[in-house]
Design a protein around this nucleic acid. Structure first.
Lengths: 229, 229
DNA sequence: CGCGGCTTTGATGTTCATCAAGTAAAGTGG
DNA sequence: CCACTTTACTTGATGAACATCAAAGCCGCG
């Protein structure tokens, strides 16, 4: 009974499947996986397309975007490996509700949705663990939207800066992966006001800005702003 | 092989279970169900409480509420029978993320969550149909929040009036089940501005107001406002 | 090297929250 | 059942927060 080895060994998807599937089923899934690299800026899924795959972000950073009309978009959330399975709506809808776009070079691992569903029907434990993950992803989106809604401009910007520092990069210095316009589309304000607020934070020596690089200089004050505005 | 009869026969929960459970399992679930009537205004679940039941709204109308601090709340959504299973987060979290409060007299039917989970583990098809329903509920909340976010005051009020007329009451005349304050908490604006906007609509003869009763007099115009503001 | 998209700043006006003050309605205790 | 308290509703006046418009510099990319 030697350990099963495949190229997915280091993949997080592995644990998702492995904990609830028998070895045979796991190997069969594993063999059919498709892996693809999406360069920064590329479209991974387009809003309205039929959902054919169960997909998982192995590495990189993506955004979920809703196209309102020709020129306006709303960003629903940013997604990194682990915290998100890129499987929003896969059970409830036949088409992608949102576009998925790579913000950094991103590796996507995908399986045929039909096969995953088939496997879920045959294995309730597996189905339940999938439901749990989808559930959690949706919960996080809703919670973040509520958190943003209760804040005003300054608080929203502070919130998103802390989000990238704490959740995404785990560092107070990081390269902003999104444009000012994208921040605006995420927090529901205008690009100009995002810029103005960042400049204000810079003048108040709360952050340092160097092109895309941002350093949080006074985290305490930023937290205060995030809580009170 | 006579038809199985129980008091749940007219219940929508029935189809949810029945389509994917064998007769024995269904009967066993059905026998253990707990049914309770919550009068208008009463608390059904409190934010932070442990989630112990899988619950379903049989009749009535409820609101999901997030308590921010002593005096401020956010309304996440309104839920009616069928479109909502009051089971947000049941798989992802151990505690209720939001309070659930009855806006009208509401009947709740509940089962022990552990037993439902057990059954899901034994029956993948059932698990998948549950996942689908939770998924759809979350999707709707996110979509509504995005729809509200992209509108300004007038558009938001128009949107919610049309929501109650089209989705909830299927009539252009209805008794508003929520206070002005609750509308404000739902759309993220102040009570005063909700009232002002309703008055404005009344003066423009778009709606008629008589206490809690609202009649949509010029639906076309209301739709226009909903789309353009 | 020039075009288009992103960034930045300023000036202006709109939208909205806040404060205040009063009326109506609904619940509470004697 | 009535006086009383509280909560919901309503309107106006004011200022703050934010969007919009305009203009210019910057940067990457074909």
């Amino acid at each position: 009974m030697g350990e099963y080895q495949c190229s997915c060994n280091g993949c997080e998807l592995r644990s998702l499947f492995f904990e609830n599937l028998e070895k045979g089923a796991y190997e069969s899934m594993c063999a059919k996986k498709q892996q693809q690299l999406y360069p920064k800026g590329s479209l991974i899924y387009r809003q309205g397309e039929k959902i054919s795959h169960f997909s998982y972000l192995k590495s990189g950073l993506v955004k979920l975007v809703r196209n309102i009309d020709d020129k306006n978009e709303q960003i629903i959330c940013f997604a990194r490996p682990l915290d998100f399975v890129s499987l929003l709506s896969i059970f409830s809808e036949t088409c992608h509700q949102y576009s998925v776009i790579a913000l950094e070079d991103s590796e996507i691992c995908s399986l045929y949705l039909d096969e995953v569903k088939e496997m879920a029907m045959q294995n309730g434990r597996f189905a339940l663990s999938l439901a749990e993950k989808i559930n959690r992803a949706s919960d996080n989106i809703i919670l973040t939207m509520l958190n943003i809604r209760q804040r005003r401009l300054l608080g929203r910007i502070a919130y998103i800066l802390l989000y990238f520092a704490n959740e995404v990069y785990k560092s107070d210095v990081f390269d902003m992966p999104v444009s000012r316009k994208e921040i605006a589309e995420f927090i529901g304000m205008t690009t100009e006001n995002v810029i103005r607020t960042l400049s204000e934070f810079r003048q108040d020596k709360i952050i340092k800005i160097n092109g895309k690089t941002i350093e949080i200089a006074d985290k305490e004050k930023l937290v205060q702003i995030s809580l009170n505005a």
